[in-house]
Computed example of a mutant assay.
Amino acid sequence: MRPAALNRLTVQEAGDRYVELVRARTLTGGLSPATAEVYARDVATFADLAGGGRVLDDLDGADVDAVLLAFARKPDGRRAVPEGRAAPQGPAQSASSQARFRRSVSAMFKHAVLAGWVQVDPMTAATVSARERGGLRAERRALTREQATGLIGAARRLGEDGGGPAGERAARDGAAARRDQRTEVRDALVVLLLATVGPRVSELVRANVEDFYTNDGVRYWRIFGKGGRTRDVPLPGDVALVLDAYLAGERRGGGPAVAAGEALLLSWRGRRLARGDVQGVIDRVQRRVDPAHRRTVTPHGLRHTTATHLLADAVDMDAVRRVLGHGDLSTLGRYRDELPGELEVAMRSHPLLRDRDRDRG
């Protein structure tokens, strides 16, 4: 039974108390000392990544997601890289270590609910789950309308002002102030294309400048998809404006003319953007979103977002299928995620009752 009063402990205080209880279980034989120390180490790492001075009850699912993904990228001190050898690519922590860390955090929050340290277990709202292969990953789940518009709004602002003067950006984000290293408009373009057109991440990073053309005043993207199939998708006006701004000024710092077959999206070193870099781009833009409307999302989650909201707005299913590049409508059904409150909205505007509502008016 939940205590009547909430004890607003900081993350550090709650972690220390929980570790004391875990270590006490070793005295009764309920837990081995080695296992208890693993819990203690994971809880200490969680406090460090989440911020020990924050109130535990203030953490939500997005905060937990950020900590879990930060842990996955945290270097493993037990596996030293020999001198002269390059560090391994991919997540720094093994898949088993990531899954164990998530279990430790989940166990702590279960106790926190019973002890009255939190009102609601934030793990129930976390989207990052453990996989047998590949470790921790955010679920490929569509953003709600508020979350999606918050992300798109942040990207549009970034595309319009480039994030502010170069000096301000360098101080705020740690970004380089050199013109050939500015990536703000590129980041905005990446997020806008993913969230409004819904390409596969492989389609996005393979895109070349020549794949974008204008017909009767409308900007199109010729997307080269699976199985050698191509599709021409018109870009929303706001996205086309950011694309043109990127091509005119920010790509390569406004450098030389583009050659045929040259990549659209470049790293600040001038190389084609890699698939693994796209998640980092999304995360950077997410940091500009109001925390109340921010949630971790993968590139494929933004593809789900495109499909879900186009279908929820009664866009023709075949048109959505063609935008996403699916071969048939049955595949599209897997991309239609449930949105909170959508059933209530549907029943309030029931088509069989609209005539009666008009008569009352």
Rank of each mutant, 00 (worst) to 15 (best):
274 A>D: 10
20 E>R: 14
266 L>G: 09
341 G>H: 10
304 H>W: 06
339 L>P: 06
81 V>R: 12
272 R>A: 15
211 D>K: 04
303 R>K: 15
349 S>H: 15
109 F>D: 07
331 T>F: 10
353 L>P: 01
215 N>P: 00
291 P>N: 13
183 T>E: 11
251 R>S: 10
119 Q>V: 07
247 L>D: 11
178 R>F: 07
343 L>K: 13
356 R>P: 00
286 Q>V: 01
255 G>V: 12
121 D>K: 10
171 A>T: 08
272 R>S: 14
158 L>P: 01
258 V>S: 13
12 Q>L: 10
27 L>I: 00
57 D>R: 08
302 L>I: 05
272 R>D: 11
159 G>Q: 01
314 A>H: 15
53 G>M: 05
58 D>W: 05
299 P>V: 03
12 Q>M: 06
97 S>C: 11
94 S>K: 04
249 G>V: 02
201 V>E: 11
284 R>M: 06
322 R>D: 15
23 R>Y: 06
52 G>P: 03
31 L>Y: 02
210 E>T: 05
113 V>E: 08
175 A>W: 12
66 A>S: 12
218 V>N: 00
166 A>S: 15
52 G>W: 01
357 D>T: 07
353 L>N: 13
184 E>P: 00
120 V>K: 15
321 R>V: 05
41 R>S: 11
61 G>C: 02
85 R>C: 11
355 D>G: 10
39 Y>T: 01
94 S>F: 01
254 G>T: 14
194 L>S: 03
332 L>I: 10
152 I>C: 01
49 L>A: 03
176 A>E: 14
265 L>W: 06
316 D>K: 14
342 E>R: 14
128 V>G: 02
82 P>F: 13
159 G>I: 01
243 L>E: 02
187 D>V: 09
254 G>R: 10
308 T>K: 09
60 D>S: 13
209 V>K: 05
298 T>A: 07
74 K>I: 00
286 Q>A: 13
244 D>T: 12
227 G>I: 02
44 A>N: 06
38 V>W: 02
60 D>V: 05
143 L>P: 02
23 R>V: 02
65 D>Q: 07
199 P>Q: 04
54 R>V: 04
234 P>S: 09
228 G>N: 07
358 R>P: 01
218 V>L: 07
185 V>D: 09
249 G>C: 05
14 A>R: 06
179 R>S: 12
145 R>F: 12
164 G>I: 09
158 L>V: 06
170 A>Y: 04
295 R>F: 06
250 E>L: 09
20 E>Q: 12
18 Y>D: 04
44 A>Y: 03
306 T>V: 15
245 A>E: 10
87 A>T: 15
183 T>L: 07
58 D>P: 08
110 K>E: 10
156 R>N: 00
48 D>G: 04
164 G>S: 07
359 D>I: 02
180 D>K: 09
13 E>M: 09
278 V>N: 05
110 K>N: 12
243 L>T: 03
56 L>M: 11
287 R>Q: 15
314 A>Y: 08
299 P>K: 11
300 H>D: 10
108 M>Q: 06
128 V>E: 06
33 P>C: 03
152 I>Y: 04
335 Y>G: 02
335 Y>D: 03
308 T>V: 11
227 G>H: 00
195 A>G: 05
113 V>R: 10
102 R>V: 01
193 L>W: 03
77 G>H: 15
222 R>E: 01
79 R>E: 10
277 D>Q: 14
52 G>D: 11
193 L>V: 03
361 G>M: 00
101 F>M: 07
299 P>C: 08
249 G>Y: 02
245 A>F: 05
131 R>L: 12
